Simulated assay, not measured.
Amino acid sequence: MCIGSSDIIKSRGFQSETHYVETADGYVLTVIRIVNPYVKKRLLLKPVLLQHGFICNSDIWLIASMGHLGFFLAANGYDVWLANMRGNRYSLNHIHLSSDDSKFWRFSIDEMIEYDLPAMIEYIKKQTKKDQIGYIGHSQGNYMMFALLATQPHYTNTIKPFIAISPVVYLGNATSLLLNLGQYVYPLLRRFEFSFLLIDRPLKFYAKLCDTAYWAQVVCHRIFYLMFGFQSSQWNMTRTGIYISNIPSGASSWNTAHVLQLSRANRPERYNHWYSRDNERRYNSSVPLAYDMEALNSTDIALIYAANDWVNHLDDVRLLKDHLKVKLLDDYLVPDSTWNHLELVMGTGAGQYVNVRVLDLLDKY
């Protein structure tokens, strides 16, 4: 069930490369490259980095029954790279620390912004000999890129375009049950460093149970829907076990606390450490500093979002657009009012409503 991105890629007739990218603070990230065997002059292809969201992994771009964006782009002449952020099941290595060590888990989204994204971007540029790469994010993957462009504006010249699928930046109006329940353990998550929802073995067992009969698939989908939101009309029941075996895929307690903090603060900001002295040391302030969306100067940003997204509420999308002082490359609301957060990348209609539009945007570059 949990066969991994490389095996999924090979099963679809493509070839796979596994790259290990070391960050400046010692984490080793697993980045998967999809290789189209029918393309001989690979150096001519435009590289595109696909970045998953919170508690997900690179498989999210590969497992949809009809809308797998990773394969779609590779088949249409793009050099596709799939990111895995520190702390998920594929990126549990460090040059000095073991993932059994609590120090390994001492990171929030800030470190992904400061270390992980630059490391992957520079690595891909070096491997492909290209100065520009496309970037497609989902959910937290977009928060990371918006913050990177706000704090390191030179990447504006590198990331062309930035396509934000479910552009999560403001979370004040989110209605997700998972976010609401998480508030009860928010102090615990802030106070201690540990892995969060990295439960591969029990998840694999549960996924097998879900595929034992149709009624089991229906029940498992309903449970998944309550936690994450995913309309049955967009859910392929025959792939229930595949979906469930991949979400959740692990994160750190601080990463989780950071997400919950954003929903409380309703502004993009750095992590609020348990001890105010840590904030003082890092930010020269007792409170975390904001990521200034008004500082972005890129005109290569496209927004793709859904009306019924429990994580990325339409009011929060409007708030983001109010703070962005640049003209958007695209501003697209999926024309189905029932779509939620994950349908945008895993729904049976993602190919028609999302992937084709993404391809059109990339083709402009």
Score class of each variant (00 low, 15 high):
residue 51 Q to T: 02
residue 49 L to R: 00
residue 116 D to L: 01
residue 46 K to L: 12
residue 99 S to R: 10
residue 111 E to Y: 00
residue 71 F to R: 05
residue 123 Y to H: 15
residue 109 I to T: 10
residue 91 S to P: 00
residue 99 S to I: 10
residue 88 N to Y: 02
residue 93 N to K: 13
residue 78 Y to I: 13
residue 128 T to E: 04
residue 109 I to V: 10
residue 126 K to R: 13
residue 79 D to T: 12
residue 89 R to G: 12
residue 93 N to C: 10
residue 72 F to S: 03
residue 112 M to N: 07
residue 127 Q to C: 13
residue 82 L to V: 10
residue 82 L to E: 03
residue 65 S to Q: 14
residue 73 L to F: 10
residue 114 E to V: 06
residue 102 S to R: 12
residue 81 W to V: 05
residue 71 F to A: 07
residue 98 S to T: 10
residue 72 F to L: 02
residue 100 D to P: 11
residue 114 E to L: 09
residue 68 H to K: 11
residue 131 D to L: 11
residue 47 P to Q: 04
residue 80 V to H: 03
residue 74 A to T: 05
residue 98 S to D: 08
residue 130 K to S: 15
residue 50 L to D: 01
residue 52 H to L: 02
residue 81 W to I: 05
residue 74 A to K: 04
residue 123 Y to C: 07
residue 76 N to I: 13
residue 54 F to T: 01
residue 89 R to T: 14
residue 68 H to W: 07
residue 63 I to H: 07
residue 119 A to H: 05
residue 67 G to F: 05
residue 70 G to R: 06
residue 78 Y to E: 10
residue 78 Y to M: 07
residue 48 V to L: 01
residue 106 R to K: 12
residue 133 I to R: 00
residue 58 S to N: 08
residue 75 A to L: 12
residue 112 M to C: 12
residue 117 L to T: 08
residue 61 W to N: 08
residue 123 Y to E: 03
residue 88 N to I: 05
